[in-house]
């Protein structure tokens, strides 16, 4: 499907805006391995965009390109209508692009609360000197940040583990804390690498609900990678399908489901 440039209305009546991020002819090589081969697609304001594909298709690599962890060998990344130069991951984060990781990257030694607060570092203003000399202002700012964090904690229903060191949490809750930390940055785009992998059915349902609520309540644009086809079809507005580093499909869940290349790729590969 080619969405009109000014946006579109989803079947469930949500209004999707113009292009927020655009990948143009992205290629990524690691030595001889071509992880991404000449892929282009866009992500629209307010949209839930999924990237799917068999193992090793290059999905995580794509997310890493968007978040600046990988520099594409060829191609351009456009954000808010402007071409983005080669950037470090922390610079991308400061643009308002937050992410989670397939293998979870949390601060294990810190409490849940501290982990989520760390997500707000880019939004904290007070510098070293002002903190030392204008203690009052810094304390007030800290309070505001804590308030915002408490809202996210309530939102994701993790009040009862606020003070727990993250290292002690079970897998499913870690994934939720990671989402909370990304949300704390109040991002323009939220990138989620397999947010439901390794979860039981109940946890998956919770996570689905959170993702939909985030999108609905904060209007956050979301790009996510997911293996579970059912989940993808329920969640996403548009889907990019990758296989062996190439894009083999792009459109609404229905369009993608009926695409012969996609069907072949999925039938030809065993999944875990």
């Amino acid at each position: 499907m080619n969405a009109p440039s000014e946006g579109y209305i989803t079947p469930d009546g949500r209004k999707i805006g113009g292009v927020l991020m655009e990948m143009k002819n992205i290629t990524l090589r690691f030595g001889g391995v071509v992880a991404i081969k000449d892929i282009s697609f866009d992500i629209r304001e307010g949209e839930i965009r999924a990237i799917i594909g068999p193992n090793g298709a290059g999905k995580s690599s794509m997310l890493n390109v968007i978040s600046g962890f990988y520099i594409p060998t060829e191609g351009e990344v456009w954000f808010k209508g402007r071409k983005r130069g080669p950037m470090k991951p922390y610079e991308v984060a400061r643009l308002g692009i937050a992410r989670t990781f397939q293998n979870i990257a949390l601060f294990d030694g810190m409490s849940v609360l501290d982990n989520i607060l760390t997500g707000r570092l880019t939004l904290m203003k007070s510098g070293l000197l002002s903190q030392a000399f204008w203690y009052g202002a810094a304390a007030k700012e800290e309070d505001e940040h804590r308030e915002k964090v408490e809202k996210i904690i309530d939102f994701l229903e993790i009040q009862n583990i606020r003070k727990t060191p993250v290292g002690r949490l079970p897998y499913g809750l870690k994934k939720r804390v990671e989402l909370a930390r990304a949300l704390a940055a109040e991002p323009r785009i939220l990138l989620l690498d397999e947010p439901m992998a390794g979860m039981n059915v109940e946890e998956k349902e919770d996570m689905c609900r959170f993702i939909l609520d985030v999108n609905d309540e904060f209007g956050t644009t979301i790009a996510l990678i997911e293996h579970d086809m059912g989940v993808v079809m329920d969640l996403s507005d548009r889907v990019v399908v990758m296989d062996y580093g190439r894009k083999i499909g792009d459109g609404t869940p229905d369009e993608v489901r009926n695409n012969q290349d996609v069907i072949d790729a999925y039938l030809g590969v065993a999944h875990g």
Partner: peptide, 17 residues
């Protein structure tokens, strides 16, 4: 806080800017 974050996990630290 940033210092503690880096001491804990480089990747995660990068991802929060």
């Amino acid at each position: 806080r940033a210092l503690r974050a880096v001491a804990d996990d480089h990747q995660a630290a990068l991802s929060v800017g």
